[in-house]
Amino acid sequence: MDVSRRYRESWEGFWAATSDTPGEAIWDSDPSFTSVPDSELLLPYADATLPVVDLGCGNGTQTRYLATRFARAIGVDLSHAAIEHARGADTAGTAEFEQIDLVDLDAVRALRERTGDTNVYMRAVIHQSEPQDRPAVAAAVAELLGERGRAFVVELTSASKEVLQRAAAEPGGPPPKLRRVFDHGLKPAGAGDEEVPEVLRAAGLRILADGDTALVQTEQLRDGTRIELPSRWYVLARE
């Protein structure tokens, strides 16, 4: 099974139209807002001598930071253009990057065969996946963990829809970076609050810890307020 052609083309179009300028993608926040605090939540449960796989890595900003905390870091994304950005930005060669469709279980299994048990970092992938693909995305996390790996998954909550709606309703329309998301047919905050933990559990994942947070964006409202999207994080192990 693969993602739909429309979904794939939406992401290829987005990343192909995105420059190498840090922060041009609305979610491309500095690691100090994202993978730094996220790692502090994950590491008490995880073996840092195992690799970490950053699922939905985009241009690799978070992957490069994760490479400083784990023995090895591999960034994975559906989009070829995103992986090209990630490889180009990693001038020091601190991480590895591969184009993989998470819905393609054979491709995910092949990655696990190459890496062994891994930790997983996944930021805001389930909520924007097409509904029929969300179970497969969760199953990819479980497949990669094996017995020893641990995962950190963070997803938008329904409250983030209200934030996005307010931003889109501002005079003049959505701020430029948010407009680009909509123009490419991407649909954030698509998963319900109960759907995410249900999908994770159905994939054979056990929730070790969870809590509320916010995904800090690189865009601001017209009054200068930074857009922050209410979210929930989970530390997970395979049952």
Rank of each mutant, 00 (worst) to 15 (best):
G75P: 05
D212F: 10
S10G: 09
R6I: 09
G75D: 12
Q99E: 15
V181P: 05
E96Y: 07
N119M: 03
A110I: 03
Y7D: 12
F97V: 04
D106S: 14
D210R: 04
S10R: 11
V163K: 01
V153F: 07
Y45V: 02
G88L: 07
N119K: 04
F70N: 11
D210I: 00
L178R: 10
A73G: 10
W15H: 07
E24A: 05
L78V: 10
E143P: 05
R109N: 14
L208P: 00
L111R: 09
A48C: 14
P37I: 07
T61I: 15
A138W: 00
L43A: 15
G13R: 09
R109H: 14
R72Y: 13
E219N: 07
D54L: 04
L156R: 04
P176W: 11
E98Q: 14
R179V: 01
L50H: 12
S231N: 06
L156W: 12
Q132R: 13
L200G: 00
V53S: 01
E130R: 09
N59I: 02
R87D: 00
Y65H: 15
I227W: 01
G116M: 08
A167Q: 09
L105Q: 15
A203Q: 03
Y234W: 00
A189F: 01
R166Y: 06
F33H: 14
E84G: 09
D212L: 09
W15A: 04
P197Y: 01
R109C: 13
G58V: 06
L208D: 05
S129E: 03
S158P: 00
S4L: 05
F14N: 01
E195G: 03
G185V: 12
V36Y: 12
A86R: 05
I26A: 12
R87Y: 02
L50K: 04
E40V: 06
D117P: 14
D117S: 04
H127N: 08
V53I: 14
D223I: 09
E155M: 01
E228F: 05
R148Q: 14
V108D: 08
Q165M: 09
D54W: 00
E162F: 10
E170Q: 15
R114Q: 15
T91I: 13
Q128G: 04
N119L: 10
P197H: 02
T218K: 09
Q217A: 15
Y7N: 03
R226K: 08
D104W: 03
S158W: 07
A48Y: 06
I83K: 02
D117L: 06
A140C: 06
F182D: 03
D106F: 09
L215I: 15
V196S: 01
L144W: 00
A214Q: 14
G93N: 11
P22V: 03
T115L: 06
E219C: 11
E143M: 11
R112E: 11
L144Y: 01
F182M: 12
L186D: 06
R150D: 02
L105V: 13
E162Y: 05
L229M: 10
L105N: 04
E12V: 07
M1C: 11
V103N: 13
G56I: 03
L236F: 01
A189G: 10
D90I: 08
G146E: 09
M122A: 07
G204D: 01
A16L: 08
I100V: 15
A25G: 01
V163P: 10
